[in-house]
Amino acid sequence: MTAPVLPAQGALRRRITPWLLVAPAALWLFVFNVWPSLNTLVLAFTNAKPLSGGHFTGLDNFGRMLDDTQLVDALLNSIVFMVVCLPVLTLLPLLLAVLVEKKIPGITFFRTAFYTPVVASAVVVALIWSWLLSDRGLINGLAQAMGVLQGPLPFLTDRWLLVFSAITLTVWKGLGYYMIIYLSALGNVRRELHEAAAVDGAGPVRRFWSVTVPGVRNTMLLVSVLVAVSALRVFSELFVLSNGTGGPGGRAMSLVMLIQLYSRGFYGHFGYASALSLLLFVITIGPMLLLARLNRKAA
């Protein structure tokens, strides 16, 4: 028989072990999540800069926002981004999921291929599209060869064309991701409903609207909230397509691009960048809370 562990010692160990296991994650929680959140709130009321400490300046940063035409442009871009992405990225991936749902030969290959743009980094995708959309790139070249265009369209140097190019590649990159979310939801739509509708003489289009869509309604809501939030957070696509400039006069920037702009260098302003971060928080918190609720319901 081995020597029994002293009860007091065992109890102590039992009390401490859970804390030891959770300690690293808790440390990360406080150092890289809780503290930066509180610090954002504090910094937003200061004029802290990369090269100087800064002091409390009250509501100055928020007053500055009101006169910031670049911010107005950025918010307008975000709204356009969201308004276009929402319907397209809520509906197209659903149609795609219906297309890849049926297990016909080779379907795994197609599903995998459609998901490939999702795993590529936004930078890689944006560089590929920069080349496709450049003045002397494939799209302008083919359009001119076919006589659709007389001269090249300035996809990467015109404000609205830039925004729409970024939307295009966001849709292209997002299709596969939302397709997979829909695919797992489609598995739960009861087959008998489809059969009953078919018996009643409903064609595929009719069945899509009256059986599939109501069956995945909650998932459509989830996807549309995901799309809305990621539209508000867009950065890499616009940054790389515009080569870091934000387009002519910086008018094709997004809110996150502005935050990045003020994060460093001579123009760096942690205070203003933090105030912009709070603005981002305010406009995303609604959809994010809804998302958390939807996820809990799904779980």
Partner: peptide
């Protein structure tokens, strides 16, 4: 609850203070 609450915060919101940290 604290772990869960971080999920409603987009990473970009705290990126500046994270850099400061």
């Amino acid at each position: 609850a604290l772990f869960l609450s971080t999920l409603v915060l987009p990473g970009e919101v705290t990126i500046i203070s994270q850099y400061v940290t």
